[in-house]
Design a protein around this nucleic acid. Structure first.
Length: 401
DNA sequence: TCTGGGGTCCTAGGACCC
DNA sequence: TCTGGGGTCCTAGGACCC
């Protein structure tokens, strides 16, 4: 690489190693050489497991019951999201000292475009090692870094680098790197799509690369077919966008399109009163967050998961966007009652508001606005009290037990 | 004691409009 | 009077990611 030109591999994907578990162990040094599982409470799943637990087959996302069967000697730690958030913020600050072009994917993962940093800090691989050393010194946790010309290859490279390493994929080695991988490694290929592709005899990324786009599209849909064929050849033009990206990584630093909350009951519920109380609690959580963000939304979606895990959604779009708890709750209740459930056992309910837009951009009809004015004022009074005394201090009467 | 919670995007059908 | 084509919105479900 010349000092004047842009680096051939300017993108870093930095991924904390077993982030929650590493932070938990850091806080409790006696767990250093013990299998550790974070999360996994009642009816829960594993949020993170350290490498000693992974040796027994424990994986994040796995039902807690299964994890405990696989590794009964593991210590299970409750997650401390506030702590994880603080560590994450500190780590991201370290990234931003390298470059302003930091795209935060989640608490434990980010992309950095270091094109503009090589003159000051050296080639990308050296920047990667500097960042790793800094995080290790300051936070006492390790991370892995993938270095490549594109986002998708950098991400795959960081996975290969785990734990506690760096992998660089130069441009001329991209297909050599990609083609032996299982198709399931590609971004956007989950369990279902992987099984579908395997049934067609497409096992490796190379197989996908050498399949006509039309064939892929018939198998997995127009969009995904085209997307996968591109990725299989390392074709990924997405740039690092400063800010936080959504889970799918396409939005980049854009405001939320929806906000929601859901809850799995401790025990399955068939009592309408209990369900409605939970819907009110979830709704006030969501609308409270909406008001903090200064957004309102038009579509309310109710999610219901039955005891057998089948899940349905029902949605209704209102003529006016709202952030008013009572309006969203009324809509959610109507959707629930329209299901006509008779003693069906529910495992989970959820409420989501979609079609969010900045509140000030939302047109208000005066007649409707006046009718709802009282509720809106009530919400704002609740918000003020919650800020002053904590959210537990103010809640609807029906949530008082 | 099987399977969390926060999201995004895609697909597909029907309604509706031009 | 046998019937097009495109665009947008709404709804429901599904897949995926962290």
């Amino acid at each position: 690489m010349t000092s004047a030109g842009a680096p051939a591999t300017p993108i870093l994907h930095i991924d904390m190693d077993a982030f929650y578990a590493s932070v938990a162990v850091r806080e409790r040094p006696e767990l250093w050489e013990v299998p550790v599982i974070v999360g996994g409470g009642y009816r829960g799943v594993v949020l993170s497991a350290n490498y000693l637990a992974r040796e027994h087959g424990v994986r994040s996302g796995m039902p807690a019951t299964r994890a405990r069967r696989l590794c009964p000697q593991a210590v299970v730690v409750a997650p401390d999201h506030e702590l994880f958030g603080r560590v994450s913020t500190a780590v991201v600050e370290t990234f931003r000292r390298v470059t302003p072009l930091v795209e935060v994917v989640s608490l434990d993962e980010a992309f950095l475009d270091v094109s503009g940093s090589v003159r000051r800090l050296g080639p990308p691989v050296e920047i990667a090692e500097q960042v790793r050393a800094t995080i290790h010194d300051e936070q006492a946790i390790t991370c892995s870094v993938g270095v490549a010309a594109t986002i998708s290859v950098a991400k795959l490279a960081s996975k290969r680098a785990k734990p506690d390493g760096v992998v660089v994929v130069p441009p001329e080695e991209i297909t050599t790197f990609l083609h032996p991988l299982d198709v399931g490694e590609l971004y956007g290929v989950g369990e279902k799509t992987r099984a579908m592709l395997h049934r067609l005899g497409l096992v490796t990324v190379g197989d996908v690369a050498h399949t006509p786009v039309r064939t892929l599209q018939r198998a997995v849909g127009d969009h995904l077919g085209r997307h996968l064929h591109g990725l299989a050849w390392g074709d990924d033009r997405r740039e690092v966008v400063a800010g936080s990206s959504g889970a799918f990584g396409l939005g980049g630093a854009e405001p939320d399109r929806s906000m929601g909350a859901q809850e799995t009951f401790g025990r399955d519920v068939d009592d309408r009163t209990v369900v409605l109380r939970e819907l009110l609690r979830l709704t006030s959580t969501v609308t409270g967050r909406m008001r903090v963000a200064g957004v309102a939304g038009r579509t309310v979606t109710l999610t219901v998961r039955f005891a057998d895990f089948t899940t349905i959604t029902r949605s209704r779009t209102m003529s006016e966007a709202t952030d008013v708890t009572q309006e969203v709750y009324r809509t959610a209740t109507a959707l629930y009652d329209a299901l006509g459930l008779q003693r069906a056992r529910l495992r989970l309910v959820g409420v989501r508001v979609e079609g969010l837009a900045p509140r000030e951009s939302v047109h208000h009809q005066h007649v409707l606005g006046e009718r709802e004015h009282g509720w809106s004022e009530a919400d704002r009074a609740v918000d003020r009290a919650a800020r002053r005394f904590g959210s537990a201090a103010v809640r609807p009467a029906s949530l008082l037990s």
